[in-house]
């Protein structure tokens, strides 16, 4: 197990380096020239030549790549192609922070709706309420964001004036409510599903039956034994959900006008801002690898039959 973790951790930098290399290759293969894009439609060939020189685009790929990797090792992710004279970190950091706050808010929504509802559904297994909950959550889950977002804006902002329609005001602002709901509700459906399954598992366990037999009150059994044990496997998917949200809030950010990482990375693709894009890939990949590792380890703890090798 320890050896496995060490091996995974050692492999991570190699993986990141390969991922970055992939972006470099795409960068040279993609049509569109970052220098030309930055200069706009009036650039003369001379302008472009000089700008390419300045941006270091004329160096061969391996040279650029190793310069880049060298920089990253020193914590320098280079300068943005699009935003003149800005370092990548200066641009990426605030945007990433915004996305993280949004995703945490969404996770709170998902968890606070999903877990109780999933638990409740499991307890009501056999009644009409269980399938009603499961199906309605699935309907919400399948609802495309292209509908959810405008619908929430129309209803809660334009009609009721309860919350702002768009924009970003930080974690503790009213603006975060709608986008957090938009991302969080489908997430809640996922949690309902897992929590329900996991609760059903636990309810069937011997110790729960024993607890009941010992005459413990329903409340105690439910919360001391069932809910707590049912939560364990569900918690492991939270990490995964977080990692998955990284690129997922893109359209939400677009419609709600949130200056998050999804928007920035999309812009980076369209603007051929490869330094920014590479930074995102590295950060995103790093998070994903880390999340996967945590999940794998968590699995072995929950289910000892699984062995990592």
């Amino acid at each position: 197990m320890l050896a496995y973790i060490v091996r995974r951790l050692l492999w991570t930098p190699v993986l990141l380096a390969l991922a970055a290399f992939f972006v470099f290759i795409m960068g040279t293969w993609a049509p569109g020239d970052p220098a030309e894009l930055r200069l706009g439609n009036r650039a003369t060939p001379d302008n472009i030549k000089r700008e390419r020189e300045r941006m270091g685009l004329n160096d061969p790929i391996p040279v650029r790549y190793f310069n880049y990797v060298g920089g990253v090792l020193k914590g320098d992710f280079g300068d943005s192609y699009h935003y003149q004279g800005r370092s990548v970190l200066e641009i990426v950091r605030p945007r990433l922070w915004v996305s993280m706050q949004l995703n945490i808010a969404a996770l709170i929504v998902a968890v606070s709706i999903g877990l109780p509802l999933g638990f409740y559904a499991a307890k009501k297994q056999g009644t009409a309420r269980d399938p009603a909950i499961v199906i309605s959550m699935l309907v919400l889950y399948a609802m495309p964001v292209f509908f959810t977002a405008p619908f929430l804006i129309l209803f809660f902002a334009v009609k009721l004036h309860w919350v702002p329609a768009s924009g970003w005001g930080g974690f503790f602002s009213l603006q975060i409510i709608l986008p957090a709901l938009t991302i969080g509700i489908p997430g809640a459906a996922v949690f309902v599903r897992f929590m329900r399954a996991s609760t059903l598992d636990v309810i069937g366990q011997e110790y729960v039956r024993t607890a009941h037999a010992k005459g413990m009150s329903n409340f105690v059994v439910n919360y001391r034994h069932v809910a707590r044990n049912a939560l364990l496997p569900v918690v492991t998917i939270m990490g995964f959900t977080m990692a998955g949200m990284f690129g997922g809030s893109l359209i939400v950010e677009l419609i709600y006008g949130i200056p998050g990482a999804g928007r920035l990375s999309l812009d980076a693709i369209f603007q051929r801002d490869f330094p920014v894009l590479t930074a995102f890939v590295l950060l995103g990949a790093g998070m994903l690898v880390f999340a996967n590792l945590i999940i794998d380890i968590a699995y072995t703890i929950i289910d000892p039959r699984i062995r990592l090798q």
Binding site: P150, L154, V158, A165, S166, G167, L254, I255
Partner: peptide
């Protein structure tokens, strides 16, 4: 100048 975008009409109606 709000640079993050959003649904302009809704923002206007909401006095943003």
């Amino acid at each position: 100048f709000n640079l993050a975008g959003g649904v302009a009409m809704a923002m206007y109606e909401n006095d943003e």
